[in-house]
Design a protein around this nucleic acid. Sequence first.
DNA 1: TTTTTAAATGAGCAAATGCTCACTTATATT
DNA 2: AATATAAGTGAGCATTTGCTCATTTAAAAA
Lengths: 196, 196
Amino acid sequence: MRYRDENKMQAIRDCAIEMVAKNGLENFGINRLAKAAGVSPATIYIYYKDKEDLLTSISIEEGVKMTRATLKGFDPNASFREGLWVQWKNRAAFSLDNLQAAEFFEQLRNSTYKDKMREAISLEFRKSMGSFVENAVKRGEINEMPLEVYWSVAFAPLYALIRFHNEGQSLDGRKFKFSESIMKQTFDCVLKGLSK
Amino acid sequence: MRYRDENKMQAIRDCAIEMVAKNGLENFGINRLAKAAGVSPATIYIYYKDKEDLLTSISIEEGVKMTRATLKGFDPNASFREGLWVQWKNRAAFSLDNLQAAEFFEQLRNSTYKDKMREAISLEFRKSMGSFVENAVKRGEINEMPLEVYWSVAFAPLYALIRFHNEGQSLDGRKFKFSESIMKQTFDCVLKGLSK
DNA sequence: TTTTTAAATGAGCAAATGCTCACTTATATT
DNA sequence: AATATAAGTGAGCATTTGCTCATTTAAAAA
């Protein structure tokens, strides 16, 4: 029998990410994707059930990749400061290295597909993160707080910064460029806010 | 001559917001909107040039409303703590009172329309906010920092919290409900992080 | 070499899309 | 009452949409 051409599947995935990132979810279509990937529309339906399945599958894949990248070299038993800083650096590096994947992901996060994505991500998240915050509380490094409050204070600022970078210009119209020193400055604020 | 029926325009606006909020930008269509608003498709084109004009016009309108609501009763000369707290409370109240408008806005913010929205919002923002941060720095209440860093630390956490609330469940699968005490707790973290 | 299996395809369908046009309706002005 | 003007309409066009099917192609198994 004939084998699957893994290059084709990869082309479909890559083009889908690129198209959504560049033209938005609202302009993404199967026929268009097929043409861009150099593939028949029917071929896409060998790999994916339908349009929704394609988008959710890819976004979950990318989400897992991003989470894994964020936790690379992360030691759950490290000090809170060090642990969080590793995550910040990893996450920023991933976004800068995978601009389109990050943009694709952000688009899906704000669409009607968001519900289906959350499960896969929260699972991965819970596994590796749960104990880290708990430990930091036990050791008296940070105050006890609901997980939502923690996430909002600890990560939302980083995501916002990355977003400013991707958009290329800031709130007041001037240019804005992400840098390690900007990240460090923001991190210091966040850490101070969370610390006892 | 015949007058414009302001109810019709309002119905179009309201339905558009509701449809995007409920079904996502990618499922929003003019024919669908016309039917939902009880209006002919052609009528929509009396008020708006095309689909893009409709979406950007409405989102700019809502964005201005939101910014105005956020700055209601805000005194640029108040202390930093008080000023920021007023903005937090206003913004949260607006989102809770206008769930669909907030969701609509968030969807547009992450679409290809985002560029056209930023101008209108940043204009409104700059007008009323610029001096507030500057003054706080001069009075020694907070450290000097780029505006993007300030925004990321001061507001991104609040937006994240509101998002958790709207999504109804949190990162780890449990229920999550926004409350004044949760908001206050988060605010204290943020304030501590920004303060000298 | 022949057979079997599944990958891959291009043409194209039914439905939906954004949008228009010839026309009707309502109301201020004459 | 007649006229002028712009709001408002329903049918529908050209195109695009998501998706399928009859068929062909490649390669493992016989």
